[in-house]
Write a protein that binds this DNA or RNA. Structure first.
Length: 478
RNA sequence: GGCGCGUUGGUGAAGCGGCUUAACACACCGCCCUCUCAAGGCGGCAUUCACGGGUUCGAAUCCCGUACGCGUCACCA
Protein backbone atom coordinates (compact mmCIF):
# COMPACT_ATOMS: atom_id res chain seq x y z
CA UNK A 1 0.00 0.00 0.00
CA UNK A 2 1.41 3.36 -0.89
CA UNK A 3 1.99 6.00 1.71
CA UNK A 4 -0.49 8.82 2.17
CA UNK A 5 0.29 11.76 4.43
CA UNK A 6 -1.47 14.98 5.03
CA UNK A 7 -0.78 18.50 6.15
CA UNK A 8 -3.83 19.70 8.06
CA UNK A 9 -3.50 23.33 9.13
CA UNK A 10 -6.17 25.56 10.58
CA UNK A 11 -6.58 28.76 8.64
CA UNK A 12 -5.94 31.05 11.59
CA UNK A 13 -3.35 33.43 10.19
CA UNK A 14 0.27 33.28 9.24
CA UNK A 15 2.24 30.23 8.34
CA UNK A 16 4.63 29.59 11.15
CA UNK A 17 7.99 28.02 10.97
CA UNK A 18 7.02 25.08 13.15
CA UNK A 19 3.92 24.49 11.05
CA UNK A 20 5.88 24.69 7.87
CA UNK A 21 8.37 22.18 9.17
CA UNK A 22 5.57 19.76 9.93
CA UNK A 23 4.27 20.31 6.39
CA UNK A 24 7.76 19.61 5.09
CA UNK A 25 8.26 16.41 7.05
CA UNK A 26 4.84 15.13 5.99
CA UNK A 27 5.77 15.93 2.40
CA UNK A 28 9.10 14.16 2.66
CA UNK A 29 7.52 11.05 4.15
CA UNK A 30 5.02 10.90 1.27
CA UNK A 31 7.54 11.59 -1.48
CA UNK A 32 9.94 9.03 -0.13
CA UNK A 33 7.50 6.55 -1.61
CA UNK A 34 7.39 6.93 -5.42
CA UNK A 35 3.66 6.19 -5.22
CA UNK A 36 3.20 8.34 -2.15
CA UNK A 37 0.42 10.92 -1.94
CA UNK A 38 0.57 14.24 -0.12
CA UNK A 39 -2.71 15.79 0.90
CA UNK A 40 -3.72 19.24 2.06
CA UNK A 41 -6.73 19.37 4.34
CA UNK A 42 -8.08 22.56 5.83
CA UNK A 43 -9.28 22.15 9.41
CA UNK A 44 -11.71 24.95 9.98
CA UNK A 45 -14.14 23.48 12.47
CA UNK A 46 -13.56 26.34 14.87
CA UNK A 47 -15.63 28.94 13.14
CA UNK A 48 -14.68 31.56 15.69
CA UNK A 49 -11.00 31.49 14.89
CA UNK A 50 -11.15 31.73 11.15
CA UNK A 51 -9.06 34.47 9.65
CA UNK A 52 -9.81 36.04 6.32
CA UNK A 53 -7.26 35.15 3.67
CA UNK A 54 -5.51 32.59 5.81
CA UNK A 55 -6.22 29.78 3.40
CA UNK A 56 -4.55 31.69 0.61
CA UNK A 57 -1.47 32.14 2.75
CA UNK A 58 -1.35 28.38 3.14
CA UNK A 59 -1.61 27.82 -0.61
CA UNK A 60 0.93 30.51 -1.37
CA UNK A 61 3.42 29.24 1.15
CA UNK A 62 3.24 25.66 0.03
CA UNK A 63 3.63 26.77 -3.54
CA UNK A 64 6.59 29.04 -2.79
CA UNK A 65 8.27 26.17 -1.02
CA UNK A 66 7.66 23.65 -3.73
CA UNK A 67 5.59 21.46 -1.41
CA UNK A 68 3.16 20.36 -4.09
CA UNK A 69 0.13 18.49 -2.81
CA UNK A 70 -1.58 15.80 -4.84
CA UNK A 71 -4.98 16.26 -3.26
CA UNK A 72 -6.56 19.26 -1.62
CA UNK A 73 -9.36 21.81 -1.81
CA UNK A 74 -7.77 23.57 -4.77
CA UNK A 75 -6.61 20.55 -6.73
CA UNK A 76 -9.36 18.06 -5.93
CA UNK A 77 -8.96 14.34 -5.38
CA UNK A 78 -11.03 11.25 -4.72
CA UNK A 79 -11.38 11.74 -0.98
CA UNK A 80 -12.93 15.19 -0.82
CA UNK A 81 -14.18 17.50 0.24
CA UNK A 82 -10.86 18.60 1.73
CA UNK A 83 -12.26 21.39 3.84
CA UNK A 84 -13.74 20.24 7.12
CA UNK A 85 -16.53 22.76 7.24
CA UNK A 86 -17.83 21.31 3.97
CA UNK A 87 -17.69 17.86 5.44
CA UNK A 88 -19.69 19.08 8.43
CA UNK A 89 -22.32 20.30 6.03
CA UNK A 90 -22.49 16.81 4.58
CA UNK A 91 -23.40 15.50 8.04
CA UNK A 92 -20.43 13.21 7.92
CA UNK A 93 -19.11 13.59 11.44
CA UNK A 94 -22.54 13.40 12.97
CA UNK A 95 -23.16 10.10 11.22
CA UNK A 96 -19.90 8.67 12.41
CA UNK A 97 -20.48 9.90 15.95
CA UNK A 98 -23.78 8.05 16.05
CA UNK A 99 -22.17 5.01 14.53
CA UNK A 100 -19.59 5.13 17.28
CA UNK A 101 -22.30 5.17 19.93
CA UNK A 102 -23.74 1.98 18.50
CA UNK A 103 -20.29 0.44 18.60
CA UNK A 104 -19.88 1.37 22.26
CA UNK A 105 -17.11 3.88 21.67
CA UNK A 106 -19.14 6.91 22.62
CA UNK A 107 -22.26 8.06 24.49
CA UNK A 108 -24.71 10.92 24.62
CA UNK A 109 -24.17 13.50 27.33
CA UNK A 110 -26.69 16.04 28.58
CA UNK A 111 -24.59 17.65 31.28
CA UNK A 112 -24.60 21.38 31.53
CA UNK A 113 -21.49 23.06 30.22
CA UNK A 114 -21.52 25.79 32.82
CA UNK A 115 -21.75 23.27 35.62
CA UNK A 116 -18.71 21.54 34.22
CA UNK A 117 -16.78 24.79 34.01
CA UNK A 118 -17.57 25.57 37.60
CA UNK A 119 -16.52 22.19 38.82
CA UNK A 120 -13.36 22.36 36.84
CA UNK A 121 -12.63 25.69 38.43
CA UNK A 122 -13.40 24.44 41.91
CA UNK A 123 -11.50 21.19 41.71
CA UNK A 124 -8.49 22.58 39.91
CA UNK A 125 -5.98 20.59 37.93
CA UNK A 126 -7.02 17.26 39.26
CA UNK A 127 -10.50 17.56 37.85
CA UNK A 128 -11.55 14.62 35.81
CA UNK A 129 -15.14 14.27 34.81
CA UNK A 130 -16.84 11.00 35.49
CA UNK A 131 -19.78 11.43 33.22
CA UNK A 132 -22.99 9.92 34.67
CA UNK A 133 -24.63 10.09 31.25
CA UNK A 134 -22.74 7.11 30.01
CA UNK A 135 -25.00 4.98 32.23
CA UNK A 136 -28.05 6.19 30.35
CA UNK A 137 -29.56 3.82 27.83
CA UNK A 138 -29.50 4.83 24.20
CA UNK A 139 -33.29 4.60 24.03
CA UNK A 140 -33.72 7.00 26.89
CA UNK A 141 -31.19 9.38 25.38
CA UNK A 142 -32.95 9.35 22.05
CA UNK A 143 -36.22 10.10 23.75
CA UNK A 144 -34.71 13.14 25.46
CA UNK A 145 -33.17 14.29 22.21
CA UNK A 146 -36.48 13.90 20.42
CA UNK A 147 -37.96 16.09 23.15
CA UNK A 148 -35.54 18.80 22.12
CA UNK A 149 -32.88 18.51 24.80
CA UNK A 150 -29.38 19.71 23.87
CA UNK A 151 -26.64 17.14 23.91
CA UNK A 152 -23.06 16.43 23.03
CA UNK A 153 -21.45 13.12 22.23
CA UNK A 154 -18.55 12.09 24.42
CA UNK A 155 -16.01 9.37 23.95
CA UNK A 156 -16.44 6.31 26.17
CA UNK A 157 -13.12 5.16 27.55
CA UNK A 158 -12.87 1.44 28.34
CA UNK A 159 -10.86 0.10 31.24
CA UNK A 160 -7.31 -1.10 30.80
CA UNK A 161 -4.21 0.26 29.17
CA UNK A 162 -3.53 1.66 25.77
CA UNK A 163 -0.19 1.35 24.12
CA UNK A 164 1.05 2.52 20.77
CA UNK A 165 4.21 2.99 18.82
CA UNK A 166 5.56 6.27 17.62
CA UNK A 167 8.31 6.31 15.00
CA UNK A 168 10.11 9.06 16.89
CA UNK A 169 9.36 8.35 20.54
CA UNK A 170 9.01 4.60 20.54
CA UNK A 171 6.42 2.69 22.51
CA UNK A 172 4.17 4.69 24.79
CA UNK A 173 1.77 3.16 27.26
CA UNK A 174 -0.85 4.85 29.42
CA UNK A 175 -3.52 3.76 31.83
CA UNK A 176 -6.94 4.45 30.40
CA UNK A 177 -7.98 5.93 33.74
CA UNK A 178 -5.89 8.96 32.89
CA UNK A 179 -7.78 9.49 29.65
CA UNK A 180 -10.52 12.05 29.48
CA UNK A 181 -13.96 11.30 28.10
CA UNK A 182 -13.64 14.10 25.63
CA UNK A 183 -16.40 15.66 23.63
CA UNK A 184 -16.48 14.37 20.08
CA UNK A 185 -19.51 16.16 18.73
CA UNK A 186 -20.35 19.58 20.12
CA UNK A 187 -23.89 20.71 20.88
CA UNK A 188 -23.85 22.82 17.72
CA UNK A 189 -23.40 19.65 15.73
CA UNK A 190 -19.78 20.43 14.85
CA UNK A 191 -17.14 17.85 15.58
CA UNK A 192 -14.24 18.75 17.83
CA UNK A 193 -10.82 18.73 16.28
CA UNK A 194 -10.04 15.46 18.01
CA UNK A 195 -12.90 13.70 16.34
CA UNK A 196 -12.86 15.29 12.90
CA UNK A 197 -9.17 14.63 12.67
CA UNK A 198 -9.51 10.92 13.34
CA UNK A 199 -12.46 10.48 11.02
CA UNK A 200 -10.78 12.37 8.21
CA UNK A 201 -7.46 10.67 8.57
CA UNK A 202 -9.17 7.36 8.27
CA UNK A 203 -11.54 8.32 5.48
CA UNK A 204 -8.71 9.87 3.50
CA UNK A 205 -6.62 6.76 3.89
CA UNK A 206 -3.81 8.46 5.76
CA UNK A 207 -1.14 5.87 6.52
CA UNK A 208 1.38 8.10 8.24
CA UNK A 209 0.27 10.80 10.63
CA UNK A 210 2.92 13.51 10.91
CA UNK A 211 2.16 16.18 13.51
CA UNK A 212 3.52 18.11 16.46
CA UNK A 213 4.28 16.27 19.68
CA UNK A 214 1.62 18.22 21.56
CA UNK A 215 -0.68 15.49 20.27
CA UNK A 216 1.34 12.71 21.77
CA UNK A 217 -0.75 12.67 24.95
CA UNK A 218 -4.03 12.48 23.11
CA UNK A 219 -2.98 9.80 20.68
CA UNK A 220 -4.18 6.94 22.93
CA UNK A 221 -7.66 8.44 22.84
CA UNK A 222 -7.55 8.61 19.07
CA UNK A 223 -6.44 5.03 18.90
CA UNK A 224 -9.37 3.99 21.05
CA UNK A 225 -11.65 5.55 18.47
CA UNK A 226 -9.90 3.71 15.66
CA UNK A 227 -10.29 0.51 17.60
CA UNK A 228 -13.96 1.09 18.38
CA UNK A 229 -14.59 1.50 14.67
CA UNK A 230 -12.42 -1.47 13.87
CA UNK A 231 -10.11 0.68 11.74
CA UNK A 232 -6.43 0.26 11.19
CA UNK A 233 -4.28 2.58 13.27
CA UNK A 234 -1.85 4.68 11.22
CA UNK A 235 1.86 5.03 11.74
CA UNK A 236 2.64 8.01 13.96
CA UNK A 237 5.45 10.49 13.57
CA UNK A 238 5.32 13.10 16.30
CA UNK A 239 7.75 15.97 15.87
CA UNK A 240 9.20 18.05 18.69
CA UNK A 241 8.53 21.80 18.49
CA UNK A 242 10.71 24.49 16.96
CA UNK A 243 11.72 26.72 19.83
CA UNK A 244 12.44 30.40 20.20
CA UNK A 245 14.55 29.75 23.27
CA UNK A 246 14.79 26.95 25.77
CA UNK A 247 11.39 27.72 27.28
CA UNK A 248 9.04 28.75 24.55
CA UNK A 249 8.36 27.75 21.03
CA UNK A 250 8.33 30.02 18.05
CA UNK A 251 5.02 31.75 17.78
CA UNK A 252 3.35 34.77 16.40
CA UNK A 253 2.48 35.89 19.91
CA UNK A 254 6.17 36.15 20.68
CA UNK A 255 6.60 38.30 17.63
CA UNK A 256 8.69 35.64 15.95
CA UNK A 257 9.21 35.62 12.23
CA UNK A 258 6.77 33.72 10.06
CA UNK A 259 7.69 32.26 6.71
CA UNK A 260 6.42 35.32 4.90
CA UNK A 261 8.34 37.62 7.24
CA UNK A 262 11.53 35.79 6.40
CA UNK A 263 10.87 35.98 2.69
CA UNK A 264 10.24 39.69 3.05
CA UNK A 265 13.56 40.02 4.81
CA UNK A 266 15.32 38.54 1.84
CA UNK A 267 15.54 34.85 2.57
CA UNK A 268 15.03 32.31 -0.20
CA UNK A 269 12.25 29.78 0.35
CA UNK A 270 14.73 27.05 -0.59
CA UNK A 271 17.10 28.18 2.12
CA UNK A 272 14.37 28.47 4.73
CA UNK A 273 13.15 24.99 3.94
CA UNK A 274 16.67 23.63 3.94
CA UNK A 275 17.30 25.20 7.32
CA UNK A 276 14.13 24.04 9.04
CA UNK A 277 14.64 20.53 7.72
CA UNK A 278 17.79 20.52 9.82
CA UNK A 279 15.97 21.67 12.95
CA UNK A 280 15.19 18.44 14.70
CA UNK A 281 16.44 16.13 12.01
CA UNK A 282 19.97 15.14 11.12
CA UNK A 283 21.04 13.59 7.83
CA UNK A 284 23.23 10.50 7.82
CA UNK A 285 25.95 12.07 5.76
CA UNK A 286 27.95 15.06 6.85
CA UNK A 287 26.22 17.62 4.76
CA UNK A 288 24.02 20.70 5.24
CA UNK A 289 22.95 21.99 1.86
CA UNK A 290 19.96 20.18 0.45
CA UNK A 291 17.42 20.95 -2.22
CA UNK A 292 13.96 19.68 -1.51
CA UNK A 293 14.44 16.73 -3.85
CA UNK A 294 17.68 15.86 -2.15
CA UNK A 295 15.88 16.02 1.18
CA UNK A 296 13.38 13.49 -0.10
CA UNK A 297 16.26 11.14 -0.81
CA UNK A 298 18.06 11.75 2.46
CA UNK A 299 15.09 11.90 4.80
CA UNK A 300 14.52 9.23 7.40
CA UNK A 301 12.02 9.60 10.24
CA UNK A 302 14.26 7.59 12.53
CA UNK A 303 16.67 10.49 12.57
CA UNK A 304 14.14 12.99 13.86
CA UNK A 305 15.16 14.13 17.33
CA UNK A 306 13.03 14.08 20.46
CA UNK A 307 14.00 17.50 21.71
CA UNK A 308 12.77 20.91 20.66
CA UNK A 309 15.35 22.69 18.54
CA UNK A 310 16.06 26.38 18.98
CA UNK A 311 15.71 28.39 15.80
CA UNK A 312 19.01 30.16 15.16
CA UNK A 313 18.64 33.16 12.86
CA UNK A 314 22.42 33.35 12.43
CA UNK A 315 22.69 29.94 10.92
CA UNK A 316 19.74 30.59 8.64
CA UNK A 317 21.58 33.69 7.45
CA UNK A 318 24.66 31.69 6.67
CA UNK A 319 22.68 29.03 4.84
CA UNK A 320 20.80 31.67 2.89
CA UNK A 321 24.13 33.17 1.86
CA UNK A 322 25.25 29.78 0.61
CA UNK A 323 22.14 29.46 -1.50
CA UNK A 324 22.50 32.98 -2.84
CA UNK A 325 26.13 32.44 -3.76
CA UNK A 326 25.37 29.21 -5.54
CA UNK A 327 22.94 30.88 -7.92
CA UNK A 328 23.61 31.40 -11.58
CA UNK A 329 24.62 35.04 -12.09
CA UNK A 330 21.80 35.84 -14.50
CA UNK A 331 19.18 34.43 -12.17
CA UNK A 332 20.80 36.18 -9.24
CA UNK A 333 20.83 39.49 -11.12
CA UNK A 334 17.14 39.18 -11.89
CA UNK A 335 16.42 38.39 -8.26
CA UNK A 336 18.39 41.26 -6.75
CA UNK A 337 17.77 44.03 -9.26
CA UNK A 338 14.79 45.39 -7.29
CA UNK A 339 16.98 45.57 -4.20
CA UNK A 340 19.80 47.24 -6.12
CA UNK A 341 17.32 49.74 -7.49
CA UNK A 342 16.30 50.69 -3.98
CA UNK A 343 19.74 52.17 -3.38
CA UNK A 344 20.99 52.93 -6.85
CA UNK A 345 19.24 55.26 -9.26
CA UNK A 346 22.28 55.82 -11.48
CA UNK A 347 22.70 54.09 -14.80
CA UNK A 348 25.15 51.43 -13.72
CA UNK A 349 25.30 47.89 -15.01
CA UNK A 350 23.07 45.83 -12.68
CA UNK A 351 24.79 42.61 -13.57
CA UNK A 352 28.20 43.92 -12.62
CA UNK A 353 26.76 45.17 -9.35
CA UNK A 354 25.08 41.84 -8.75
CA UNK A 355 28.37 40.08 -9.32
CA UNK A 356 30.15 41.97 -6.55
CA UNK A 357 27.40 41.61 -3.98
CA UNK A 358 26.65 37.99 -4.67
CA UNK A 359 29.73 36.91 -2.77
CA UNK A 360 28.89 39.19 0.14
CA UNK A 361 25.19 39.40 0.85
CA UNK A 362 23.58 36.79 3.06
CA UNK A 363 20.10 38.24 2.73
CA UNK A 364 18.57 40.37 0.01
CA UNK A 365 17.53 42.97 2.51
CA UNK A 366 21.09 43.93 3.32
CA UNK A 367 21.89 44.74 -0.30
CA UNK A 368 20.74 48.39 -0.49
CA UNK A 369 22.96 49.38 2.42
CA UNK A 370 26.00 48.04 0.66
CA UNK A 371 25.56 50.21 -2.42
CA UNK A 372 24.98 53.76 -1.28
CA UNK A 373 28.38 54.89 -2.52
CA UNK A 374 27.43 54.32 -6.15
CA UNK A 375 25.02 57.24 -6.27
CA UNK A 376 26.62 59.32 -3.59
CA UNK A 377 30.17 60.57 -3.55
CA UNK A 378 30.75 62.86 -0.64
CA UNK A 379 33.80 64.65 0.72
CA UNK A 380 35.69 62.44 3.14
CA UNK A 381 38.48 62.67 5.66
CA UNK A 382 41.87 61.93 4.13
CA UNK A 383 42.55 59.79 7.17
CA UNK A 384 40.71 57.13 5.18
CA UNK A 385 43.79 56.73 3.04
CA UNK A 386 45.67 55.46 6.03
CA UNK A 387 46.08 51.72 6.24
CA UNK A 388 48.85 50.26 8.30
CA UNK A 389 49.04 46.93 6.56
CA UNK A 390 48.90 48.40 3.11
CA UNK A 391 51.42 51.03 4.14
CA UNK A 392 49.34 53.77 2.69
CA UNK A 393 48.22 57.19 3.87
CA UNK A 394 47.28 60.56 2.45
CA UNK A 395 50.90 61.16 1.42
CA UNK A 396 51.04 57.97 -0.59
CA UNK A 397 47.69 58.79 -2.12
CA UNK A 398 48.97 62.17 -3.18
CA UNK A 399 51.78 60.50 -5.01
CA UNK A 400 49.81 57.62 -6.48
CA UNK A 401 46.46 59.03 -7.48
CA UNK A 402 47.72 61.37 -10.23
CA UNK A 403 49.49 58.37 -11.71
CA UNK A 404 46.26 56.44 -11.67
CA UNK A 405 44.45 59.33 -13.27
CA UNK A 406 47.02 59.47 -16.05
CA UNK A 407 46.70 55.79 -16.81
CA UNK A 408 42.93 55.74 -16.66
CA UNK A 409 42.54 58.80 -18.84
CA UNK A 410 44.22 56.95 -21.64
CA UNK A 411 42.29 53.78 -21.08
CA UNK A 412 39.44 53.09 -23.47
CA UNK A 413 38.42 49.54 -22.64
CA UNK A 414 36.62 49.83 -19.33
CA UNK A 415 35.98 46.15 -18.75
CA UNK A 416 37.15 44.67 -15.53
CA UNK A 417 39.76 42.54 -17.24
CA UNK A 418 41.26 45.47 -19.11
CA UNK A 419 41.32 47.66 -16.02
CA UNK A 420 42.90 44.84 -14.09
CA UNK A 421 45.71 44.55 -16.61
CA UNK A 422 46.43 48.20 -16.84
CA UNK A 423 46.13 48.97 -13.13
CA UNK A 424 48.41 46.17 -12.10
CA UNK A 425 51.16 47.46 -14.35
CA UNK A 426 51.22 50.62 -12.34
CA UNK A 427 52.53 49.31 -9.02
CA UNK A 428 55.12 47.34 -10.93
CA UNK A 429 56.35 50.42 -12.71
CA UNK A 430 56.32 52.53 -9.57
CA UNK A 431 57.89 49.77 -7.52
CA UNK A 432 55.01 49.75 -5.09
CA UNK A 433 52.93 46.98 -3.63
CA UNK A 434 49.58 46.39 -5.32
CA UNK A 435 47.81 47.59 -2.21
CA UNK A 436 49.63 50.88 -2.17
CA UNK A 437 48.09 51.75 -5.50
CA UNK A 438 44.75 50.02 -5.42
CA UNK A 439 43.79 50.82 -1.83
CA UNK A 440 44.10 54.60 -2.24
CA UNK A 441 42.38 54.40 -5.59
CA UNK A 442 39.42 52.56 -4.08
CA UNK A 443 39.17 55.13 -1.30
CA UNK A 444 39.42 57.97 -3.79
CA UNK A 445 36.56 56.80 -5.97
CA UNK A 446 34.24 55.62 -3.19
CA UNK A 447 35.01 57.67 -0.12
CA UNK A 448 34.25 54.65 2.00
CA UNK A 449 36.46 52.70 4.36
CA UNK A 450 34.95 49.47 3.17
CA UNK A 451 33.04 48.61 0.05
CA UNK A 452 31.78 45.46 -1.58
CA UNK A 453 34.45 44.86 -4.17
CA UNK A 454 37.82 46.45 -4.86
CA UNK A 455 39.00 49.46 -6.85
CA UNK A 456 39.01 47.64 -10.17
CA UNK A 457 35.52 46.20 -9.86
CA UNK A 458 34.09 49.47 -8.65
CA UNK A 459 35.80 51.58 -11.29
CA UNK A 460 34.41 49.27 -13.91
CA UNK A 461 30.91 49.71 -12.53
CA UNK A 462 31.22 53.49 -12.23
CA UNK A 463 32.39 53.82 -15.80
CA UNK A 464 35.15 56.00 -17.19
CA UNK A 465 33.51 59.38 -16.89
CA UNK A 466 32.36 58.98 -13.28
CA UNK A 467 35.59 57.33 -12.17
CA UNK A 468 37.71 60.15 -13.60
CA UNK A 469 35.40 62.77 -12.13
CA UNK A 470 35.67 61.25 -8.65
CA UNK A 471 39.40 60.73 -8.96
CA UNK A 472 40.00 64.33 -9.98
CA UNK A 473 37.81 65.55 -7.16
CA UNK A 474 39.64 63.39 -4.66
CA UNK A 475 43.03 64.61 -5.86
CA UNK A 476 41.96 68.21 -5.64
CA UNK A 477 40.95 67.70 -2.02
CA UNK A 478 44.22 66.23 -0.93
C1' G B 1 -1.34 18.09 40.88
C1' G B 2 -2.01 13.35 37.59
C1' C B 3 -0.16 11.39 33.20
C1' G B 4 3.35 11.42 29.11
C1' C B 5 8.02 12.88 27.01
C1' G B 6 12.77 14.73 27.26
C1' U B 7 18.03 16.56 29.15
C1' U B 8 25.54 15.87 24.62
C1' G B 9 29.65 23.29 24.28
C1' G B 10 26.35 29.76 23.15
C1' U B 11 23.22 27.18 18.86
C1' G B 12 21.94 22.95 15.32
C1' A B 13 23.83 18.17 16.19
C1' A B 14 26.78 13.04 15.45
C1' G B 15 27.19 9.21 18.77
C1' C B 16 23.25 3.19 19.79
C1' G B 17 28.74 -0.65 25.42
C1' G B 18 35.37 -0.61 23.75
C1' C B 19 37.37 2.56 17.12
C1' U B 20 35.53 8.96 21.46
C1' U B 21 41.60 11.92 25.26
C1' A B 22 32.95 13.36 21.99
C1' A B 23 32.39 14.08 14.53
C1' C B 24 30.48 17.93 11.61
C1' A B 25 28.11 22.84 10.96
C1' C B 26 26.68 28.04 12.74
C1' A B 27 28.59 31.74 16.01
C1' C B 28 33.14 33.31 18.32
C1' C B 29 38.72 33.88 18.44
C1' G B 30 43.48 33.62 15.87
C1' C B 31 46.43 33.04 11.36
C1' C B 32 46.79 32.73 5.84
C1' C B 33 45.08 34.64 1.14
C1' U B 34 43.90 39.52 -0.29
C1' C B 35 43.22 46.52 -3.18
C1' U B 36 39.02 47.39 1.91
C1' C B 37 34.70 44.27 3.17
C1' A B 38 33.25 39.56 2.14
C1' A B 39 34.10 34.74 0.23
C1' G B 40 37.85 30.87 0.62
C1' G B 41 41.90 28.06 3.33
C1' C B 42 44.08 26.63 8.06
C1' G B 43 43.87 26.29 13.36
C1' G B 44 41.57 27.12 18.39
C1' C B 45 37.04 26.63 21.13
C1' A B 46 32.86 20.30 25.83
C1' U B 47 39.22 16.07 29.86
C1' U B 48 33.30 15.69 29.18
C1' C B 49 27.81 14.16 27.84
C1' A B 50 21.86 17.64 33.93
C1' C B 51 23.06 15.38 38.82
C1' G B 52 23.56 10.96 42.12
C1' G B 53 23.80 5.85 42.45
C1' G B 54 24.12 0.99 40.11
C1' U B 55 25.32 -2.96 36.13
C1' U B 56 30.06 -4.01 33.51
C1' C B 57 36.93 -5.60 32.80
C1' G B 58 34.92 -1.09 30.29
C1' A B 59 29.12 3.68 30.00
C1' A B 60 27.59 9.84 26.80
C1' U B 61 25.80 5.01 25.32
C1' C B 62 22.21 -0.07 29.81
C1' C B 63 19.20 0.28 34.78
C1' C B 64 17.26 3.11 39.04
C1' G B 65 16.52 7.64 41.63
C1' U B 66 16.74 13.12 41.92
C1' A B 67 16.58 17.83 39.63
C1' C B 68 15.12 20.70 35.77
C1' G B 69 12.40 21.53 31.19
C1' C B 70 8.43 20.69 27.77
C1' G B 71 3.63 18.79 26.56
C1' U B 72 -1.27 17.37 28.04
C1' C B 73 -5.54 17.06 31.25
C1' A B 74 -11.53 22.61 26.78
C1' C B 75 -18.29 21.86 23.54
C1' C B 76 -9.43 25.22 20.82
C1' A B 77 -6.89 23.23 17.05
Amino acid sequence: MSIRTRFAPSPTGYMHIGNLRTALYAYLVARKDPEGVYILRIEDTDQGRLVEGATDIIYDTLKACGLRHDEGPDVGGDYGPYVQSERVRDGLYKDYAHKLIRRGGAHYCFCDEEMLQERRQAEGDSFKYDDPCKLLSVEECEKRIAAGEKYVIRQTIPEGQTSFNDEVFGTITVDNETLDEQVLLKSDGFPTYNFANVIDDHLMGITDVVRGMEYLSSTPKYNLIYEAFGWEIPRYIHCPPVMKDEHSKLSKRNGDASFQDLVAKGYLPEAILNYIALLGWAPEEDREIYTIDELVQAFNVRRIGKVGAIFDPEKLKWLNGMWLRAMDLDAYTALVTPYIDQAVKGDFDRKKIAAIIQQRANTLQEIPDMLGFLDHFEPFDSELYFNKKMKTNAEVAKEILPECLEVLKNQEDWSQEALHTVLLELPKRLEKKNGQVLFPLRIAITGKASTPGGAIEIASILGKEETLRRLETAISRL
